[in-house]
Design a protein around this nucleic acid. Structure first.
Ligand code: NAD
Ligand code: NAD
Lengths: 227, 227
DNA sequence: TTGAGAATGTGAATTCATTCACAAAAGACA
DNA sequence: TGTCTTTTGTGAATGAATTCACATTCTCAA
């Protein structure tokens, strides 16, 4: 049992790096490499070895001094931490441009993220088949989410209706939502919401491109501006 | 001319928040709100007012004490900083599931991100038309990127070939790349690379879902684990 | 015109994340 | 078995980001 006093906060960046480590360990496992050092992991993700060791140390001691980390075991352990050694039932809401792309993405399936339900409000789409899944009417959202033990919902509807949809999703008891609509959704404290915002990434590139080169086309070391 | 001594580093998080402010200011502009306080901006994005003021203060003093920030002017100013008051010529490589979704996305166009070229290596796709753009043969990549003044490239090809594609993109002189392949691409120091990794977001939700609830289904305040 | 209230802009304080640096542990090999 | 090398695990040190706190400046209403 986890007691209040024995807790340690894990930062978002640490969790994101765990995903990176997991991906590399999968590659190394395929290459039949038995062990890997923090130095090697760091090199592959452009991090410092200390960072790698610190990240892993939050969860225990998995390595052997003088040798490194056992690839398979560490992968398994990180998989457990991230919840990847099980399957998650996922529902997709909105099967338009982006929604259709996600349904066809095999990598999710391989990682244990199973899209089990698809919802839309377009009569032409309801009842049609996408990769073996029949599109449900959004009207039955709550009922079907509960009946199918859905734990994660992906929202891919227009921004204008995203908040209403999310309100219903929350009402159905869902605690984890991945949102593609470029809007700041309001959810209760106990619901995890992640936003996938592609425009923001393009804006970052745009900013970098403008601000990080001087007049000679030479790169400035870091993002810096006038005093 | 920017001198070494008069520089100040802008953090990645600050730039990302500028995108958020920009989006809200666009909404407020439509609602004809003349001014907005840091408190109001903070409330809308779940930040602190101090954070908002500090972010903006890196770029100058745009506000009026006792009143707040002028909505239109601040939006314009942030637009300038992010490079949104101009157009960017973009090329998309790989018009599969995700690539097709991006081509049809009007929001990019509206923000000044114009997809001008599409590349693929599939003979059935080359020459076909997507939203008015004829798909080019990947063989002509370098030549066409240069001839069309492309500044940003979006990579939406399978992970297995992404590195080769990116190598060619870099050779063509492109300095900004948005990558959808779930792989750690190597690019020279002077090239900006952003990764859009949806699996990682799902993994984060998975982690949160597992680690942030105790046995009673009650949320733990923050991500915390055993000592 | 004035005074109360509002909100900015910014150093200082604090909190959080990363890196350093080294003792301790294990392997390799004579 | 002993010594040399490698590499972990982790407190301490550093560095970065956020928040605090308040002097300053402006608005607005009377
Ligand atoms: N297409 C992209 O490349 C892209 C990129 C970034 C973000 N987005 C965002 O993702 C979301 C979806 O984009 P898209 O391009 O797929 O749009 P789309 O219009 O192609 O698809 C939206 C889908 O949602 C359905 N829908 C609409 N209202 C609904 C409701 N009330 N209940 C259930 N379903 C409903 C529509 O029938 C449609 O199938 C948007 O918010 C968009 O801003 C899209
Ligand atoms: N589909 C999704 O929802 C999704 C989600 C996250 C990440 N991704 C990633 O995005 C990338 C694209 O995914 P997708 O589902 O669209 O795949 P896809 O197979 O549907 O599309 C890939 C496209 O790239 C083209 N291509 C292949 N080799 C090429 C080459 N050498 N030069 C030019 N074009 C080439 C193919 O012809 C195809 O049109 C992949 O790396 C995938 O992992 C996809």
């Amino acid at each position: 049992m986890i007691s209040e006093s024995s807790r340690r906060r894990i930062s978002e960046s640490t969790v994101r790096r765990l995903s990176l480590y997991y991906r590399i360990l999968s590659v190394l496992e395929k290459e039949n490499q038995a062990t890997v050092s923090s130095k090697e992991l760091a090199r592959r993700e452009k991090l410092t070895p200390a960072q790698v060791r610190k990240d892993l140390s939050f969860f225990g001691s998995f390595g052997t001094r003088g040798l490194g980390y056992p690839v398979c075991e560490l992968k398994k352990r990180i998989g457990e931490i991230l919840g990847l050694n099980r399957t998650w039932n996922i529902a997709l809401i909105g099967v338009g441009n982006i929604g259709s792309a996600l349904v066809g993405y095999k990598e999710f399936q391989r990682q244990g993220f199973h899209i089990k339900l698809i919802f839309d409000n377009d009569q032409r789409k309801i009842g049609s088949n996408h990769k073996g899944i029949t599109v449900s009417d959004i009207k039955n959202l709550g009922k079907e989410l509960r009946e199918n033990n859905i734990e994660i919902v992906i929202v891919a509807v227009p921004a204008t209706v995203a908040q209403y949809i999310v309100d219903d999703v929350v009402k159905a008891g869902i605690k984890a939502i991945l949102n593609f609509a470029p809007i700041n959704l309001k959810v209760p404290e106990d619901v995890f919401l992640r936003n996938e915002n592609m425009s923001m990434e393009l804006e970052y590139l745009s900013f970098a491109r403008i601000n990080l080169y001087n007049d000679l086309g030479t790169r400035i070391r870091s993002i810096q501006l006038f005093e």
